Amino acid sequence: MSLFVKSLFTFTLLPTVVFAVDSSTPNLSTSGLKYWLADEVNDTKVVTQFQNVVSSNPIKINKSVGKLARIALIYPSADLSDFWIRNYHALTKRLDAMDVNYSIDEFSSRQIQHALQTRYIDEVLARQGEYDYVIYGPSELYVQADNIQRLAKSESFQSYIWAFHTPMKSWQFQPDAWFDFSSSVGAQALCDFLIQRLGSDVSFAMNRGIPGITDDQRSGDFKSCVEEEGGWINFYEHFGQYQAGGGRDGAALITQSFPEVTMLHNANTAMTLGSLEYLAEQSLIDGMYVTGWGGTAAEIEQIKQGNLNATPMRMGDDVGVATAEAIKFSLEGRTSDIPKIYLGRIEVVDDQMSTEEINARTREAFRYSGVELE
Rank of each mutant, 00 (worst) to 15 (best):
D286W: 00
G294L: 05
I300L: 13
I135C: 08
T255K: 14
G274M: 05
V54W: 13
F19N: 14
S336Y: 10
V53I: 11
Q111M: 05
Y120S: 11
F107L: 02
L73V: 09
T16C: 13
E299C: 04
G294M: 07
N359C: 02
C191D: 01
W178G: 00
Q144E: 13
T272L: 06
I254H: 03
D192R: 13
E364F: 10
V47G: 06
S219V: 03
S2I: 06
L373I: 10
A163R: 03
Q243K: 14
S7L: 03
I121H: 01
R314M: 10
Q196N: 14
V124F: 02
E106L: 12
T269R: 01
T255M: 15
S200H: 09
K34I: 14
F107V: 04
E301A: 14
S369W: 01
L141M: 07
P312A: 09
G306W: 05
D146R: 06
H114K: 07
N307C: 03
F179T: 00
S182E: 09
L68V: 14
T166V: 07
G344E: 00
G306F: 08
H238M: 07
G66Q: 08
D216S: 10
Q196G: 14
K34P: 08
T311V: 02
V348I: 15
Q172H: 09
D221I: 11
D318T: 03
S283H: 13
V41G: 03
T118Q: 09
D350S: 11
Y75W: 11
L8I: 12
R363Y: 06
L8S: 10
S103T: 15
Y136D: 03
T48W: 01
Q302D: 07
S23M: 13
A324M: 04
F173Y: 15
S31V: 08
Y133R: 08
P138N: 05
P167C: 04
Y136K: 00
L194W: 04
Q111A: 05
V18T: 14
T118C: 07
R363N: 04
E229S: 12
F181V: 10
M288Y: 00
N87S: 08
Q302K: 13
S354H: 09
A187T: 01
T311A: 02
T272K: 05
V100A: 07
L33T: 14
W84Y: 15
A205M: 02
L125H: 00
E332G: 03
F107Y: 15
T296I: 04
F50A: 00
A187P: 06
M315W: 12
F83Q: 02
V17P: 00
G316M: 10
R361S: 05
Y133N: 06
R94N: 13
M353D: 08
Q117G: 11
L373A: 01
G295E: 06
H165L: 07
Y133Q: 04
A280L: 08
M271C: 05
R363K: 13
Y102G: 06
W178Q: 01
V41R: 03
D99K: 00
T311D: 02
D216W: 04
H89C: 00
I71K: 11
R86C: 08
G287F: 00
D216R: 01
